[in-house]
Amino acid sequence: MNPKVRDEVLKHRQTIIESWLESIEQFRADDLLQNISDTMYENTNREFVNKLVLTIQNGETNAENDLNQYVERLIQMGWPLNYITRGLQEFRKTTIRVLASESNQDSEHIEYFLEIEDWIDDVINVLVNQYSGSWENTVFLQKMALKELSAPLIPVFEHISVMPLVGTIDTERAKLIMENLLDGVIEHRSQVVLIDITGVPVVDTMVAHHIIQASEAVRLVGAKCILVGIRPEIAQTIVNLGIDLGKFPTKSTLKKGIESALEMTKKQIVELEGK
């Protein structure tokens, strides 16, 4: 930044800060900020604006490092990107307005405007890149964690396995379910597989299609499939959508499904008399 403009910003920093704090209050009604306490909002605003002013003082390299660390903290605290960008736009207007009011020369107004525009654009680029990178990394780690924990095939008795499904099933996850299912059937030599959808919040046409595909794949490798965990609301949805699940048995609970699987594998659970 031009040394002359930098000195003017630092000279009037207190006026700029107080004016910005007043104008930023209009954002408090934003739905994304409703759950943030008044004290937290005020303290974050003050830290934000002081950090911006300090970037002028500390030079470009130090400024970028400070901003990266600051934005990382905001991400961890759950602050929306919209707060950052709107706050910077408001800071741009406030700074130009304050500097213009202290000068009577039109040429200085233009100089202030261009310098502040370039500075804020650089700051926005740094913050948005940091925000995007952090969120992309967070989403990647979450997807990897979900992939590691998603849809395990659990052997519960000899030749009987259970696959509990939890959460929303999309195309990518359905592919993973299919792979785990087929690999598990072969590894555990399963004759009967129970697919438990108790933890699946919604069963629509796409989810049902994936489940039907999975059951057909199980049949092709020599095992049978039982769908369990069908709640009343899920049953109603399946009927209303006209989804045909008649090709393989269904049970309302995992307990009933295991009882059926034991019968299909010619096994039974007996209660031993006390010695």
Score class of each variant (00 low, 15 high):
8 E>C: 10
11 K>C: 06
13 R>V: 08
14 Q>I: 06
22 E>K: 10
27 F>C: 03
37 S>K: 02
43 N>F: 12
49 V>D: 12
52 L>P: 02
64 E>G: 07
64 E>A: 15
67 L>T: 15
67 L>C: 06
71 V>L: 12
77 M>C: 11
80 P>N: 08
85 T>M: 07
91 F>I: 10
93 K>P: 00
97 R>M: 04
106 D>Q: 15
107 S>I: 14
110 I>W: 14
111 E>N: 14
118 D>Y: 03
125 N>R: 13
127 L>W: 00
146 L>M: 15
157 F>I: 06
160 I>C: 04
160 I>L: 03
163 M>T: 13
163 M>H: 11
167 G>F: 14
168 T>P: 05
178 M>K: 06
179 E>Y: 09
183 D>E: 15
191 Q>E: 11
191 Q>W: 04
196 D>Q: 00
197 I>Q: 03
201 P>R: 02
201 P>H: 03
208 A>K: 02
215 S>K: 02
216 E>L: 14
221 V>P: 02
222 G>A: 06
223 A>G: 10
228 V>L: 03
233 E>V: 05
236 Q>G: 04
239 V>W: 13
240 N>T: 13
243 I>W: 05
244 D>S: 07
245 L>C: 07
250 T>M: 04
255 K>A: 08
259 E>Q: 05
267 K>P: 01
269 I>K: 00
269 I>V: 09
